[in-house]
């Protein structure tokens, strides 16, 4: 497979289709990250678009010293943080998430509706617990557990030491554990 960086170079040279190839490659994971950070499908989709647009506009600032995906995560995280600051997504979080889970479940095979119901209910609780974490912990949880990045990659994305990544993860796990054990505190 042609490496991302080749497409980045072509984009810098003015080929917009190369950048659209990068959008094709990365939009699912950027959407996943945005969803876990914003807990709302509409905001996540908007933030994904914004993040790619921002990445396109500032593509010349990519230094080719890190992987393109690392740089893109950084751009996306900045965009999501702006969303968290300015949007009222928290208020919309729960209803929107419930709706999207229900829509998703409707697509699955309906052989065992009970299991699906239980699973989606627990997913909803986990997502809500995540949405109550401080943004910095939300980011590391999402990058480590859902995007499956390694410590050093997360450290590079966030420009912080690996120890900071580990301690944020530990704190987040402990908080989530107690929240999930006492769901009425959600």
């Amino acid at each position: 497979m042609i490496p991302d960086e080749v497409y980045v170079q072509k984009t810098i040279e003015g080929d917009v289709e190369s950048f659209n190839e990068l959008v094709q490659r990365h939009h699912t994971r950027i959407y996943g990250l945005a969803y876990r950070m914003l807990s709302n499908p509409e905001d996540a989709a908007d933030a994904t678009q914004e993040a790619f647009l921002e990445a396109y506009k500032s593509i010349k600032s990519f230094q080719f010293q890190s992987k393109f995906s690392t740089w893109l995560y950084r751009v996306a995280i900045n965009t999501c943080q702006q969303y968290i600051r300015k949007s009222d997504s928290r208020a919309r979080t729960l209803s929107a998430y419930t709706r999207s889970v229900e829509e998703n479940d409707a697509q699955y095979d309906s052989d065992c509706p009970d299991r699906i119901l239980v699973k989606s209910e627990s997913d909803r609780m986990v997502q809500e617990a995540i949405s109550q974490l401080p943004p910095k912990q939300r980011i590391v949880v999402s990058l480590f557990y859902m995007q499956h990045l390694k410590y050093h990659e997360i450290a590079e994305v966030l420009d912080c030491p690996e120890g900071t990544v580990a301690s944020r993860l530990n704190t987040a796990i402990k908080t989530l554990k107690s929240k999930l054990q006492n769901p009425h505190h959600l």
Partner: peptide, 10 residues
């Protein structure tokens, strides 16, 4: 539990 969360389709 975190690892088992479903991948989200955009």
């Amino acid at each position: 539990v975190l690892e088992s969360l479903p991948a989200l389709d955009p």
